[in-house]
Computed example of a mutant assay.
Amino acid sequence: MRVQAFLFYGCAVFFLVTDVVYWLWSGDWTGTTALALSIGLAGLIGFYIHFTVRRLERANNGPLYEDDPEGDIADAAGELGFFSPHSWWPLFLAMSAACVALGVVFGWWLVMLGAAATVMTTIGLVFEYYRGHFAH
């Protein structure tokens, strides 16, 4: 996974060079700002992947199986994690986020209602498996 981190770092450097050239040739602040945000986002993703790989390598006491040149496909076998098979919370979260977006068009009262619903549904999504029948 270290390769993926350096791919995003490379994208950030590419966007940086492109941003400087774009700003010098066009003088357009909108495109320059968009490219600057692209630099930040690519760097952020690269930093996150790099940080996560370092943490996983410390937990495994060595490189990850995808970074091992002598590794086999069978080294990656096993459980990958827990994924919710039947959660309704993402649907409710998307509807409350859509309520916030529509509130910008129709009125600030709808933004406030949607923001409150977004906070409540986010809490429901995060703590879904801490209570009730499916608690671990």
Rank of each mutant, 00 (worst) to 15 (best):
D72L: 09
P69K: 09
A115H: 05
Y22G: 01
V3E: 06
W109A: 12
L113F: 07
G114N: 01
D75W: 03
H136E: 05
G71F: 10
M120W: 09
W109E: 14
T18V: 00
Y48D: 11
F15L: 05
D67P: 01
N61Y: 13
I45L: 11
T30L: 04
W29L: 15
V111F: 05
Y65D: 09
Q4N: 08
A77V: 10
P85Y: 04
A5P: 00
S38R: 03
L91V: 15
P85S: 10
H133G: 01
L16R: 01
G40K: 07
H136G: 08
G81W: 02
L110G: 01
G40I: 11
A116W: 09
L110A: 13
P63W: 04
E66R: 08
T121V: 12
T118D: 13
A42H: 08
F8A: 01
G27Q: 03
V126L: 10
F6L: 08
A5H: 02
V20H: 05
E79G: 05
T18L: 12
T52E: 13
D67V: 04
V17F: 13
V17P: 02
V119A: 13
A115P: 03
G27L: 01
G62A: 06
L7V: 14
L37D: 02
H50L: 10
T52S: 14
A94W: 09
P90Q: 11
W29Q: 11
A135T: 01
A97L: 14
A12C: 03
V53M: 05
